[in-house]
């Protein structure tokens, strides 16, 4: 008996050792590109041409960062912040509004509507690209960040509604709602005082995923904006590339500063990453 127990223990240790081995390999695979990016953004152009990219920078220089600031990096950055802030606010509010009836009210069209909205997840943005380009031109917002908000919100809606309505269905107990109703709480007060506050965990998960997505969005931004004064961060890259063709360290500095805010926000909110997803994941 004791022998068998020891055998099982040894086997368990072996399995964990192998698992750790692969876990560390994937850790390196995930992290080395970042290391490569950060280290090489800290060297001079001549240093890179001379020593290649695998040595430590000699010497470490930080002048690439002020240099990109001088070339208008903050403009791209602020435009991205504005677009993401506005789009995300609209997206989260609209999603919460829609998820409330889709998860908690009884009416005939509830399930068909929900299925329809979820099915829109498979709509490729390219099928809407030319018409949205035309619309932006007609309304006169082409080549400004305002053209990006509508499509960013709309394309986040299907998945967000799916996740949040599952979340509301599973995490907010019916009794809370009933108790509020008995206390004379109407539907609209119910939404703002009870449903919305209780959905916070789900909403923060959605904010992380959609925020990352909007921050990095490329195709709409590339189609709907043209001038330097309207471009967002994902487009800054090609602009900087155009202006500094061979200066790779400088471009890597642009990349580093573009992901940095995402990494910082992620480190702060990472515990919210799974919670809101749970309801959407279990149901499938």
């Amino acid at each position: 008996m004791a022998d068998e127990y020891r055998k099982a223990r040894i086997k368990k240790n072996i399995v964990w050792t192998i698992a750790f081995f692969f876990a560390i390999i994937w850790l390196l695979v995930a992290f080395i590109p970042f290391l490569f990016m950060i280290l090489n953004s800290l060297r001079g152009q001549g240093d890179m041409l001379q020593h290649g990219v695998f040595t430590l920078p000699q010497p470490f220089i930080f002048s690439n960062y002020p240099a990109i600031m001088k070339q208008g990096f903050m403009g791209y950055f602020m435009r991205s912040v504005i677009v993401v802030a506005i789009s995300l606010t609209i997206l989260l509010f609209a999603t919460a509004c829609a998820s409330y009836p889709l998860s908690r009210m009884r009416f005939r069209l509830r399930l068909p509507l929900r299925a329809l909205i979820v099915a829109m997840m498979s709509v490729p943005m390219h099928v809407t690209l030319i018409p949205i380009f035309k619309m932006a031109n007609k309304v006169g917002i082409y080549d400004s960040i305002w053209a990006l908000i509508g499509p960013y919100v709309a394309f986040g809606l299907p998945l967000a509604t799916f996740i949040l309505s599952s979340f509301m269905e599973q995490t907010i107990p019916k009794e809370v709602e009933e108790a509020a109703e008995i206390d004379g709480c109407g539907r609209y007060a119910m939404f703002f005082r009870i449903i919305f506050p209780l959905s916070k965990a789900g909403l923060s998960t959605l904010a992380i995923y959609n925020g990352v997505h909007m921050w990095n969005e490329f195709a709409f931004a590339n189609t709907l904006t043209q001038s330097k004064a309207a471009k967002t961060l994902p487009l800054a890259l090609s602009a900087f590339k155009g202006e500094n063709t061979i200066n790779t360290p400088l471009i890597l500095a642009v990349l580093t500063l573009s992901v940095l805010p995402m990494i910082i926000l992620f480190l702060i909110f990472q515990d919210k990453l799974v919670k809101g997803m749970m309801a959407g994941a279990v149901k499938g």
Binding site: A98, R110, P131, I132, V153, A154, Y188
Partner: peptide
């Protein structure tokens, strides 16, 4: 109430998905 709550999402989806697909 359901119609009121669903209106923003439906409006957004019609303007930025349904109509563009048809177009």
């Amino acid at each position: 109430a359901a119609a009121v709550f669903l209106a923003p999402v439906i409006l957004l989806l019609v303007i930025f998905m349904v109509y563009p697909i048809i177009d």
